[in-house]
Simulated assay, not measured.
Amino acid sequence: MLHEVSFTSYNERDQVQGWIYVPACKPNGIVQLIHGFGEHSRRYIHMISAFLDAGYIVAADDHVGHGKTAMVNNVWGDWGDKGCHTMMEDEHTLKKIVCEKYPNLPYFLFGHSMGSFITRDFIAKYGNELNGATICGTTGIFRGAKEVKEKLKEIIDAGHGEESDPNIVSSLMGWMCERCGEISIGNEWICHDPYVQSDHAQDPFDAFTRPTSNRSIYDFIQMMLVIEGTQWAKKVPTKLPIYNIAGDQDPVGEYGLGVCQVSNWLVETGHHVTTKLYSGYRHEIHNYAEIKNEVEAGIIEFMNSNL
């Protein structure tokens, strides 16, 4: 069964487009999938299918400025003016919709990349509502983010928040292919596989190759800053199990160092966290043909153990 849902965003401007995939069996629980920057939720169809086969209802949406939500609202690359918690609050709205339809089931989050930032923000505020959370391809202290934030504040204060400055995006993310050898597209950091790179770049639902407003890039950086350090980890319920996974050649996680940094913040504040680094792999570990089944099986095992 498939439910298509639409709801008003926290930004009070957009109608967020979402889906609830239901297996043809008695469900074990629910997992809400939260996609990353510039992409959309149907890039995870292989993972969604694996979760369904394991007996989980899967909820997902396309963030404001992304995917079908951007198409329906005709607004690409701008996330509204309500600040860095907008997408997190939208995910909580989706959770409420799902729980109204399917109450009293164990509930998990899976968030990749920016989706992991949203997940970490979510568990700091609403973690008591969950049975567990998987963060995939997350960041510790993102290189250069604070410096770019200061430049952006000057630009926004000067009245250019709704414009897009490609130099700003380059300053924030331009270094991320530093270990990728020859560069032709600019997204080689996501995966070694040229087909995955090409599919990502040419996807008409992807916002990655479209301009993102200065205000939204500022909010993107703020997303990372509000989930830094033990001051963030202390807000997360200590009883909430967390599974932290990434490739050790992922620049978002500073090649494993930032990933372990996040786990250490959690451990230092009394949390139970399991960390797994996939050696030799870049950002989208779930899109490597040789390991995606293993990645999905690990997430399912984590959820099954915390039902």
Results as ranks from 00 to 15, higher is better:
84 C>T: 02
81 D>T: 07
81 D>E: 15
65 G>K: 00
108 F>D: 12
106 P>S: 06
82 K>P: 00
79 W>I: 01
97 I>D: 10
92 H>Q: 14
113 S>G: 09
79 W>F: 15
83 G>L: 08
72 V>K: 14
106 P>G: 04
118 I>M: 07
119 T>M: 07
100 E>F: 08
116 S>I: 09
116 S>E: 05
96 K>L: 14
106 P>Q: 04
95 K>P: 04
78 D>Y: 07
71 M>C: 11
98 V>C: 15
66 H>S: 12
80 G>S: 07
115 G>D: 02
88 M>D: 01
71 M>P: 04
72 V>S: 13
111 G>Q: 13
81 D>C: 03
99 C>A: 09
72 V>D: 12
118 I>W: 05
101 K>P: 05
92 H>S: 07
112 H>V: 11
67 G>S: 09
89 E>I: 05
66 H>E: 10
103 P>D: 11
64 V>D: 01
94 L>P: 12
97 I>E: 14
78 D>S: 04
115 G>F: 07
83 G>R: 01
69 T>D: 08
74 N>H: 14
65 G>E: 03
77 G>C: 11
90 D>R: 01
112 H>W: 10
83 G>S: 02
95 K>H: 13
98 V>D: 12
80 G>N: 01
74 N>Q: 15
79 W>G: 00
111 G>R: 08
90 D>T: 02
89 E>P: 09
104 N>H: 10
114 M>T: 06
71 M>N: 14
103 P>H: 06
80 G>Y: 02
101 K>G: 11
75 V>Y: 02
66 H>T: 07
101 K>Y: 12
73 N>T: 07
86 T>S: 12
86 T>Q: 08
114 M>G: 06
82 K>G: 00
103 P>I: 07
108 F>V: 06
72 V>Q: 11
85 H>V: 11
85 H>P: 03
111 G>E: 11
114 M>F: 11
62 D>F: 13
78 D>G: 03
100 E>V: 03
74 N>T: 04
77 G>Y: 06
65 G>N: 01
95 K>N: 12
116 S>N: 02
92 H>P: 03
81 D>G: 01
71 M>S: 12
114 M>A: 09
99 C>F: 03
73 N>Q: 06
78 D>V: 01
100 E>H: 14
118 I>G: 02
109 L>W: 10
113 S>R: 04
94 L>A: 10
78 D>K: 00
64 V>K: 00
81 D>F: 06
69 T>Y: 06
71 M>K: 15
87 M>S: 02
84 C>K: 00
74 N>E: 15
67 G>Q: 07
86 T>M: 14
97 I>K: 09
113 S>I: 08
95 K>Q: 14
72 V>R: 11
82 K>F: 10
70 A>S: 07
115 G>M: 10
93 T>M: 13
108 F>G: 06
113 S>E: 05
119 T>W: 04
109 L>N: 10
107 Y>M: 03
79 W>N: 00
116 S>T: 08
77 G>V: 12
95 K>M: 14
97 I>C: 09
95 K>V: 03
91 E>Y: 15
67 G>W: 09
113 S>Q: 08
114 M>I: 12
91 E>I: 02
85 H>N: 13
92 H>L: 07
99 C>L: 13
85 H>K: 11
102 Y>D: 06
116 S>R: 03
78 D>M: 04
111 G>D: 10
102 Y>G: 05
